[in-house]
Design a binder for these strands. Structure first.
Length: 579
RNA sequence: CGGGACGUGGCGCAGUUUGGUAGCGUGCCUGCUUUGGGAGCAGGAGGCCGCCGGUUCAAAUCCGGCCGUCCCGACCA
């Protein structure tokens, strides 16, 4: 491609509202433009990178035997009503009506649509199946942000596995795990696979692939010693035990009430005469779960993890109870709440509290607390679960080493869905004994545009983007320092043709501008290899510069095309063959 | 949804306090000079000052309403 005549609108300055590095550079480099919040146009360079990322993702899918489809982006309401997600998806789903006032949705994912097609299969002999597509998804995000990282309209590779039994699902899930690991390596992303919450997808297990980056929105904990990694929404750790010298006096047979005027917080009670250290208190959080008051109990120095509470209860609408609600239902305002004697509301307690005694907590009467509370004796716990948030530095559950916390971009997510969708659609078939079985499913996603942004986020420097060759919009840029010098221009054009004939994707900068402008633009848009044809042409040489390293080689003109094509081919092959 | 910031040629900004001819840098066009790290000089094009309403002889500027964008939080596969 010739630069002259191409639409590569580079900018010297980034738009004022761009904050993320990938956002600034993709705009400055002429890759994307914003139409409105959360909706970006891909310009020619942007589309080329997007397509390359797609091709890497496709390779990974084809390697596990997945078959490519393309389903509609616009769905009838009934499809989503089958699984109840027409209602449960809420405002995040774009909805519209056609001229007949029939309800439609812009698809945010395609479990329903694929499962509906799967119903044509009626024999176990057809299994397993893995189906995928690369398709536009629409999600009415509350807050789009950071350029391509969080948008309302984006391409996603989504795949779906269909198996007869749990072992089959495990195989399909593991195949995706391996495929995703390879795919992110090929994209030059150091993705970490972490245990995650399944959220609105439901299902039994899910793993996120995340790339460490400060611009991300997911916090994960990781153990450097044993490799344990999980999203904070799910992560667990060994609770730090109270100091050994702090022995508990458990002589009392029942909780002892004591007045605590003005005490409203854990910290207040720590300082209060006759109070207790935080780790010896029960933190009682009155929560409204889909409108029902529920007590969530934690050790005083621990924090409630809302996602864990949501995952264990299945509640979708979770909020703290108001002080009017706690007064009415429990008899006190927040600050004096406690679980002792509470029987009419569910009590969900964190595992750390199990069989603890000598604890202090509110007495459900303002300005009154109990000491000497024994969890097993005094509290009617309906469910023991892991409820607390993990903190930086806590010991790993597996090996005890301190956990580190990392801010990450979520680039992929794989789910074991189980039979929920199959049941809703009646996706059954006959097994080898002629018995009807409901199949089990998995669903798996990679956001293409987000992957583009993540790569840009990782691969750039102060001068611009530094694309890995596999995803670069062009593999080589030929910078002609002076197009009006005939020797220079002719040599450049010969190299251009030779490279094209060798199958290399090459951009020739034939613009009538000064060399400095061309160097700056080439570095900004981040083409991995640059051939500078200029002053050395008198000696029959040109320069080959690797963008990412800045390494410069002087190469005879007669060898340059062959040499460069070879370097690129070996890079591409290295990426292709990652296992 | 709560908090904050912002909206003026393609991009970056000043001007708004104190109402009075819409400005600077960059980019763009033309010419001459220059030509390996975002050149110099000269000439030129380009703006419903986010939108609607109000106040006023007069509004980018003051008042009211609305819309939009970004950031933090909430939320979110």
């Amino acid at each position: 491609m010739q630069w002259t005549g191409s639409f590569i609108p580079t900018l010297r300055e980034a738009p004022a509202d761009a904050e993320a590095a990938s956002h600034k550079l993709l705009v400055r480099g002429g890759y994307i433009r914003q139409l409105h919040s959360g909706h970006y146009s891909l310009l020619p360079l942007g589309l080329r990178v997007h397509a390359k990322v797609e091709s890497v993702v496709r390779q990974g899918m084809e390697e596990i035997g997945a078959q490519e489809f393309l389903l509609p982006a616009m769905h009838p309401a009934w499809l989503w009503q089958r699984t109840d997600r027409w209602d449960t998806m809420g405002p995040e789903m774009f909805r519209l009506q056609d001229r007949k006032q029939a309800d439609l949705a812009l698809a945010m994912t395609h479990e329903e649509a694929f499962t509906q097609i799967f119903c044509e299969i009626s024999s176990y002999r057809s299994l397993p199946q893995i189906w995928y597509q690369i398709q536009w998804k629409f999600r009415d995000e509350p807050r789009p942000k950071s350029g391509l990282l969080r948008v309302r309209e984006f391409a996603m590779k989504d795949s779906y596995s269909f198996d007869l039994d749990d072992e089959g699902l495990d195989r399909s899930f593991n195949a995706h795990y391996e495929a995703y690991s390879r795919t992110f390596k090929r994209l030059s992303l150091d993705a970490i696979a972490v245990e995650a919450s399944s959220g609105a997808m439901g299902g039994t297990a899910s793993v996120e692939f995340v790339v460490p980056s400060a611009i991300g929105e997911d916090d994960i904990v990781r153990c450097k010693e044993c490799g344990y990694a999980a999203n904070v929404e799910r992560a667990t750790s060994k609770a730090v035990s109270p100091p050994a010298e702090d022995t508990v006096n458990t002589t009392s047979d029942e909780p002892i009430p004591f007045p605590t005027p003005g005490v409203r917080t854990i910290a207040d009670l720590e300082k209060f005469k006759g109070g207790a250290p935080a780790y010896r208190q029960i933190k009682t959080m009155a929560m409204m779960l889909d409108g029902e008051l529920t007590l969530a109990l934690l050790r005083g120095d621990h924090q409630l993890n809302l996602q864990k509470l949501s995952d264990t209860t299945g509640a979708s609408d979770i909020r703290p109870a108001t002080s009017e609600e706690t007064l009415q239902k429990l008899g006190a305002h927040p600050g004096s709440l406690g679980p002792v004697g509470v029987t009419e509301h569910p009590i969900i307690a964190d595992l750390v509290l199990q069989s603890q005694s000598g604890l202090t907590t509110g007495a459900n009467k303002d300005d009154l607390h109990y000491s000497q509370v024994d969890m097993s004796r005094d509290v009617k716990v309906s469910q023991w679960v892991d409820l607390r948030s993990v903190d930086h530095g806590e010991p790993c559950v597996h090996c005890g080493a301190p956990l580190e916390m990392l801010r990450c971009i979520e680039t992929g997510h794989i789910f074991k869905l189980g039979r929920r969708y199959a049941e809703a659609f009646g996706a059954t078939l006959l097994d080898d004994k002629g018995v009807e079985q409901t199949i089990t499913m998995g669903s798996y996603g990679i956001g293409i545009g987000r992957a583009v942004a993540a790569i840009a986020e990782i691969h750039h420097d102060e001068r611009g983007l530094t694309w890995p060759t596999r995803v670069a919009p062009y593999e080589v840029v030929i910078t002609v320092t002076n197009i009006s010098d005939r020797n220079t221009m002719e040599a450049a054009e010969r190299i251009y043709e030779d490279l094209q004939n060798a199958g290399v994707e090459v951009l020739i900068d034939d613009r009538d501008v000064r060399a400095g402008v061309k160097f700056a633009d080439a570095e900004l848009i981040g083409i991995p290899w640059r051939i500078t044809v200029g002053r050395d042409i008198a000696q029959g040489e040109v320069e080959l510069i690797e963008r990412a390293t800045g390494k410069l080689e002087k190469i005879p003109v007669v060898n340059i095309s062959h040499y460069t094509a070879g370097r690129i081919a070996s890079q591409l092959k290295a990426s292709q063959t990652i296992r």
